[in-house]
Simulated scan of single mutants.
Amino acid sequence: MASRRAVASIEDVPTETTYLFTLRETDTDEEREAILVRNDAGIYAWLNYCQHYTHIRIDKGSGAEMRGEEFICENHGAYFESDTGFCNFGPCEGAYLNEVDVAVEDDTVYLTDDDYEFVRAGPIESDATDLESKSNYKF
């Protein structure tokens, strides 16, 4: 098991939206975003990319919309179950989000996934000179 890194205290993970953080893939050094989702059964972590178009982020920096124990990709209207990552409605219905392993101990959420290293709370720091289109169509 990888050395654990504290991601957030349980108090920092909201119940009505998602908590965004940045990871680094251990094999490639590529930074990726992930979200923590809290429900009555616990706290779960998923990579922050919709399965309809995987370059679209679910949490764009202000939390994903929640309806009960589901969170929503506002770009496509896809609904994801917070505890399984399963898309039960929308254009990627039947797909699953990519899980990130976390554990909760002593009121703290720890990253326990060997594939990633914790970088920081919040989104990937963007390059101000990146002028690439973020639409689904590449120009």
Rank of each mutant, 00 (worst) to 15 (best):
E93K: 07
D101R: 08
Y116W: 13
L47N: 03
T26W: 00
E93H: 06
D113C: 08
F71R: 07
F71S: 01
V109T: 02
Y53C: 10
A45I: 10
F86T: 00
R32P: 04
E31T: 11
R67I: 09
R24A: 12
Y137K: 14
Y96S: 06
L23N: 00
Y53M: 14
T26G: 04
L20T: 00
S9E: 08
V37C: 10
T129D: 14
F139T: 02
R38H: 15
E16S: 13
E105D: 09
E16P: 00
P14F: 08
Y19S: 00
M66T: 05
R5E: 15
D127R: 04
R120M: 06
I35S: 02
K60F: 12
L20N: 06
C50V: 02
H55M: 07
Y96K: 08
W46Q: 04
C92N: 02
N39I: 11
D29N: 14
F80Y: 14
F139S: 10
C73P: 11
G122E: 09
Y116F: 15
F89A: 12
D101T: 08
E93L: 01
L111Y: 01
K60E: 15
C87G: 01
T54W: 13
L97T: 03
E99I: 08
A121R: 10
Y137A: 13
E70Y: 14
L111M: 03
E70K: 15
A64E: 06
H55F: 12
I35C: 05
S126C: 00
T112E: 07
R32W: 06
V119Y: 02
C50M: 06
I58Q: 02
E70D: 15
C87I: 02
R5T: 15
V104K: 02
E65Y: 11
D83W: 03
T26R: 09
E70S: 14
R67P: 00
D130K: 02
G122H: 05
A121C: 09
I56K: 14
A103F: 08
E65L: 12
T108V: 11
G63I: 09
E31V: 06
I43T: 04
G90H: 09
T129W: 08
N75G: 03
I124W: 05
D114I: 12
V119L: 01
P14Q: 10
L20V: 00
S135M: 11
V104L: 06
D127M: 03
Y49F: 14
G42R: 03
E70C: 13
N136C: 13
V102I: 15
Y96M: 07
T108A: 04
F86E: 04
A128R: 09
R57I: 04
I43W: 03
A34R: 01
T112P: 00
I56N: 15
F71C: 09
S3L: 13
T17H: 13
A64I: 05
D107S: 10
R5S: 15
L23Y: 01
D12S: 12
E93R: 05
G42L: 07
R4W: 13
H76Q: 09
D83P: 01
A64C: 08
H55T: 08
D101G: 03
F86N: 00
T22I: 05
L131A: 13
E69I: 11
E30C: 11
P91V: 03
D59R: 07
E69R: 15
I43K: 02
P14E: 10
A78D: 10
Y53K: 15
P14W: 10
L131T: 12
I43F: 02
A41G: 01
N136T: 14
K60L: 15
D101A: 11
R67S: 08
E105G: 00
D101S: 10
D127T: 01
